[in-house]
Write a protein that binds this DNA or RNA. Sequence first.
RNA 1: GGCCCCAUCGUCUAACGGCUAGGACUCAGGAUUUUCAUUCCUGCAAUAGGGGUUCGAUUCCCCUUGGGGUCACCA
Length: 482
Amino acid sequence: MSIPKNPDIRVRFAPSPTGYLHVGGLRTALFNYLFARKNNGSFILRIEDTDRKRYIPGAQEDLLKTIKEVGLDYDEGPIIGGDYGPYIQSERSDLYRKYAQELIDKGAAYYCFCPEERLEKLRNEAKENNTAVMYDGKCRNLSLEEVQEKLARNIPHVVRLKIPQEGSTVFYDVVRERVEVDNALVDDQVIMKSDGFPTYHLANVVDDHLMKISHVIRGEEWLISVPKHIFMYESLGWKVPKFVHLPLLLNPDKTKLSKRQGDVAVEDYLAKGYLPEALINFIALLGWHSSDDREFYTLEELIKAFSLKRISKSGAVFDVEKLNWMNGSYLRNLDLEYVAERAKPYFEKAGLDILDHKKYLKVVDNARNRSATIPEMIAHSEMFYNDLAFSAEYKDIVSKENAQKLFEFWIEHLSSHESWSEDEIKDMVKETTVVIGVKGKELYSPLRLALFGEVHGPDIPTLIDILGTKEAIARLKSVLNA
RNA sequence: GGCCCCAUCGUCUAACGGCUAGGACUCAGGAUUUUCAUUCCUGCAAUAGGGGUUCGAUUCCCCUUGGGGUCACCA
């Protein structure tokens, strides 16, 4: 029933479960997803939890939940499994140990027994000299005997990459094109920690190879570590995947998007009432753009239009203003029932009795025209459910003689039948002008105040339509002789 | 600071080496509306600077400047 996947296109999103899904992470996930779907490839989810110090219980579950909520379904990964599992790195320790040993055997890596204090000293010296912090290679050429002896004595150790000291590494990134790094400037990166867990670099390369990843699509912060990865691929005799380094998402001050300068957690945006559709659409346009002026895309349309070739090189500021605009637009254009369904929890939390579904839909339809996010809709809706409270100024307007006469007139007329069309209400307005002799602001202000509690707001036919004739009359009566 | 990456309106961005540098957000003004909101229209606003190459550079090359990333037994 389903078409077989193209084995040449396999990409992964590999988050670290350290708390929440970062919007930058969502963008990375999205681009991976789009590329996979566009090419009938596989989108794999892998959990990179090799840092036990940063382990946060429940973070992994939250991550999966959020990814599901925004509609990015994966083909292989935790829970659903796949042919290349397990998809959680902490369950793959044997693999990393095996390949670390292989790198050592091949002379591409070595045991390092330097204590933390020594490295600390090295770091401080480098800082003082204003140079890059690099391991000085003390353990690089330990003899086999020395290594055996230290291992036998259980001296804590790590495994480091034995990066060549001459030459340079050249690679081609799909976005950056040619990048060249001098090998002498590449550090002897730790690949196995003293706790027996691998670092990102080893785990990532091993898994990407074993999981047959074809394109490594990730944030630009990884660009500089590519030479280390290439060194491992080549030392192990493995095929190097294609690299695609995405431009960073930025704070308004152009630094890498971070907490402190606003929300960065996808779940925060979701909780604040942004629609997944809008969030996805907005984020897709950060660092990617089609050749035309189009800005609105469903996920399906994004898949169709997506291309790695059109990813931009420079970082993109995450502009909440534009997100607000886009979310508001989605709010207004998505199916009303759908928006109403999404808004439900917010209305319920605000204590509004929305059991009358027909009325609720009308309320939502009115509010969505005036809001950028769902929570904002509450402020435009409360008055349709709660008793109205008037300020002294408003009381004044309502109690004016003409206003009172106007109310009496409307109560009487509205009582004549159950439902009123827009035109009929408009006719009544005209009639009011003739009979009572009020018009314009003098007519609409008290009327809207009585029905809605505010001077500004929806037009009168809409108000009466939402409220229903009965409630409209009740409200008019309550301001009579008030 | 070393290394790497980047550079079009304030922001997101478009422009086979060839129109008056286009669109969107924001902001300002206007139209529609009894008001508010929506919607529509108009406007403000950019090729960082300097050298080349070329008949012609936003576009290609170099330098400068600016910004960012990275420099962990974190990812």
